[in-house]
Simulated assay, not measured.
Amino acid sequence: MLSQTISHTLRTPLYERHRFFHARMADVGGWELPTAYGSQIEEHHVVRADAGMFDLSHMCVVDIHGTDVRMFLGKLLANDIGKLKTQGKALYSCMLNNEGGVIDDLVVYYLDDEYFRIVLNAHTASGDIQWIHSQIVATNSSVTLVPRRQDLVTGDAEPLAIIAVQGPNARERVFRAIPSTHTAETVRPFNSITVHDAAVGELMLARTGKTGEDGFELIMPAKHAAQVWDMLRSAGIHATGLDAWETLRLEAGMHLNGRDMDPQTSPFDAGLGWSVDLGSERDFVGKAALCTRRQTRKFVGLAFEGAAVARTHSQVTSHQGEVIGKVTSGTYSPTLRIAIALALISPDIQFGSYVSVDVYNNRVSARVVRPPFVRDGSPVQQHDHA
């Protein structure tokens, strides 16, 4: 679970809505956020079977403008920005340091030839922005960076909020809540559209998310966030907390920066090699290091026989007692009804084999599997034995 003791924290534009509906609030990376509104397990199943919504306004939208913005992003990001040719198209990429380690993983949207939008992870946002500014200086670029999160916004830029609506009925419910000339079928995966609603102004609907379910991430002016939240609730979308988001993303085998990867982890170690463009002549930050960096770890899933959850950093050992890696994220899977984990282990360990994990001072056996554990709401059948 994500819950911790609340201290001095930041609050999103939806804070009062969460309190009104009696959400359990906790400090999540410096933000006072809803971890659950009732049963975490029920909220998890609602997203798998119907539609749930999450307040992700602690994540950071950054708009980037300029005549050479495409060239700049081509140097900044490991994935090929040249893939973005259609307005609204999205691209997942890692942003690397000079040593080829992951500073952040992010989604970038092409809005026009001089305007892109990036969504950064919450806890790395401030450092990410400093890094991007340093690269603007290093490349002598003329691009302008405009943070849109309420605590980072400057000048006359309007702060934005993010609501993720996820689940098999998510898209249909969103268009029921927010009338549009578009339909649930017109927005393709990893694409976005902009909807103009008379009541709440401009909303960006991006068909992205980290739950393993279909749906949208809605980006809107922070001043309209509560109204949009109420419109979505009126369309039958359930309010869900971040504890359910955590179990959903782990079942889907999706990474969380700071746990499953960090600046010391290469995208190849983290299982994100598919998002790195080494095949072209394009240079980007970290490319030279990746070309010579040997893979030292492999990103895997661990399926346990029981319900005891392994903590982050729990040691993974072979049955001969040799330390071969560590757990990066662990949880109880409501869909599978067993404990699961993500881990970085020796690349020599084969899928289908068994390892031992330190769980509350006990050595527990787990099977090494390929993430995800759940796809389209159903358990993935694992057939890896070599």
Rank of each mutant, 00 (worst) to 15 (best):
R19I: 15
F373Q: 00
I324T: 07
D63N: 12
R294V: 05
P334D: 07
R375W: 00
S93G: 02
D113S: 05
Y109I: 14
G201T: 07
I349W: 02
P372R: 04
R171W: 11
Q40C: 13
R233Y: 10
Q320V: 06
A170F: 09
L145N: 09
T181V: 13
S314R: 01
Y110N: 09
A198R: 15
V62D: 10
M254G: 08
T86G: 12
G66F: 08
C60P: 10
Y360D: 09
L250F: 07
L160H: 10
T183N: 09
D156M: 14
I340K: 03
A164P: 04
F351M: 13
A303H: 15
R370T: 07
P334A: 15
A164W: 02
A184I: 00
D214C: 10
R294K: 11
E172T: 09
D283L: 12
R294C: 05
G330W: 00
V316F: 03
A386H: 15
R294L: 14
Y115W: 13
G271N: 03
A177V: 09
E158G: 10
T5V: 12
L218G: 00
R367C: 02
P263F: 02
F175L: 08
T265A: 07
A36R: 11
S3G: 10
V187E: 09
T247M: 14
L278G: 01
R11D: 12
G127V: 15
D348Q: 12
G241E: 04
G286C: 02
N140I: 11
T211K: 05
S134R: 13
F116V: 07
R259T: 15
A310F: 02
L91F: 04
S353P: 04
L242Y: 04
G209E: 07
T331S: 03
V137P: 09
L218H: 02
T144R: 14
